[in-house]
Simulated scan of single mutants.
Amino acid sequence: MKANGLSQPLAKALNDQMTNEARNAQMYLAYASWASENEYTGIANFLFRHVNERRNYMMKFLEYILKRGAKVVVKAIPAPGPDPISINDCFEKIFTSEVENISKIYAIVNMSMAEKDWATFSFMQWFIKEQTEEETLEMDLLNKIKAAEDPDAKDDDTAYALDKDLVETPAMPHWHRM
C-alpha cells in the first residue's frame, strides 16, 4: 500500500512545475536550433546544454512526486513561441522565463511552508539556489550581449567573441557543479 505524502494542492503545484521545466527545455531547444541556424555555434552549444539541464530538473520533480506517493500527471507542453529576432531578444526571453520560473518555485516553497511539509520545503531549496544562479548567469550574459550589439562599440568582433566564449561556457558556472 502506498501512502500519499503530498496534499492535493502541493501535488498539483509540483506536477505543474514539472511541466514548466519541460516547457523551458523546449524553449531552450527551439532557441538553440535558431542559434545554430544563424551560425551562432557557441550560443547554440550553450543553449543545447541548457536543454539537458532543464530535462534533468523535470525528472527531479517527477522522481520526487513518485517518492512521495503522489500521482505524476504528464501534460502537453505549450509551444515555445516565435523564434528570437536577435541574440539580445533570445536572452531577454530566456531571462523573462527564468524570472517567471523562480516565482513559481517560490509559490511551491510558500505552499510547503503553509502546509508544514518540510520534506517538500527542503527539496525546493535546491531549486531556489539553481534559479538564483541561473538568473545571475542570464543577467551577466545579457550585459555582454548588449555590449556586443552596441553600435557605438569600438570592437566589431565583440559578438563573434561572445559566441566563441559560449562554446566552452557550461550551462551553469563550473563552481556550481559539485
Rank of each mutant, 00 (worst) to 15 (best):
A79P: 02
M172R: 12
L10S: 01
C90M: 12
L141N: 09
P80Q: 01
S103K: 10
L66Y: 00
E39C: 10
E98P: 06
D157T: 15
Q125V: 07
I65Y: 00
A107Q: 11
K67G: 01
K164G: 00
G69Q: 04
M139A: 13
L66E: 01
K75P: 01
Y106E: 07
D165E: 09
A76D: 05
D157I: 14
L6C: 03
Y57N: 09
L137F: 11
A3Q: 15
A119G: 06
Q26T: 05
G69C: 10
L166Y: 00
K71C: 07
G81E: 08
I77T: 02
K60A: 07
E53V: 05
K164Y: 08
F121K: 12
G5F: 10
M178G: 05
A11N: 13
T19E: 04
A159W: 08
V72C: 02
N88S: 08
K12C: 05
K2V: 13
K116R: 12
D152W: 10
H50D: 14
E53Q: 13
A153I: 15
D89L: 05
I87T: 02
N38W: 13
R55L: 15
S97R: 06
I128M: 03
D152T: 12
M178N: 11
A114G: 09
L137Q: 12
D156V: 15
G69M: 08
E37W: 14
H176Y: 15
P151R: 13
F46T: 08
D140R: 13
N4R: 04
P80N: 09
K104R: 11
Q26G: 04
A30N: 09
E115P: 06
T132D: 07
Y31M: 13
F48P: 00
K129V: 14
L162D: 12
P78Y: 06
I102Q: 01
L47N: 03
A79T: 09
F61I: 08
M1E: 08
N24A: 15
D83R: 09
